[in-house]
Amino acid sequence: MAILSRTLERLFFLAAAGSALLTAALFLLLVHLALPLFEQGGLLALLRSPWDPGAGLYGIYPMVVGSLSIAFLALLIGFPLSLGGAFFITTFAPLPLRRPLLNLVRLLTGIPTVVYSFAALFLLVPFMREHLTGGAGLNILSAALMLALLIAPTMIIFFVDAIRRVPSSYTQAAAALGGSPAQRLVYIALPLAWPGILNGLLLALGRAMGDTMISLMIAGNAVAAPESVTDGARTLTAHIALVIAADVSSLEFQSIFACGILLYLFTAILVLTLRLLGRLPERHTG
């Protein structure tokens, strides 16, 4: 029995250590496979040059711009909408509606991305083409709109959670002094809940940068760096999916490992930022 429990406990440790090692090994594997590309001039040079395989240029500058512009535009659209949604669920919705609405939002987080993209491809994209932007309708704006819709439920859940964690003694005190629900929200809850809101915003940014299917299916996948929101663009994630079919030993193929490294580093920096944010003094432990 003692031996058995010793073995089991050792297995628990091995599982944890093994998973952690794999996470680190994943990064090393990507670097190892991108090495031939780095000998051409390093990651920074790749980040600055355009994508033109015909001329021997395998820079990923256009994809970086594409990823960042789609993700930030999606946040720009999704953040106010989600904040409004969270206000509604926590404060302004009729009482019997609040819990079902929050459950509905939770359900929405489970809708497959590929289903969203498919529906958008045959509904939003033709609408864009005929009424708003012209062209193919496959552009940054379409992708950002869909991405905003995809990340909104995640943000709403975090915002609602942050607002609800504000101790009720504070809001009740404000209510006793005659504060209306809106006043309590703006002057009491929001100033205390902002770290949680920032947390949700950063996680949504990670989700937006990491999404593949929406940008692959409706951003147009153009390889030139986009100049306006009605241009098509290719994201780092979509680039990986599109180039995977190329010849394995070519430099073109190796550029996707650079994309992988960038996305990995972005995630790591985001997680570290969230960590530092978590160290902020909690002001509302009343």
Partner: peptide
């Protein structure tokens, strides 16, 4: 920390790995 990073890595990068 490592598992938080792993949870955040885009799924396409896992596929690439």
């Amino acid at each position: 920390l490592l598992f938080d990073v792993l949870a955040g890595i885009p799924s396409i990068v896992i596929g690439l790995a």
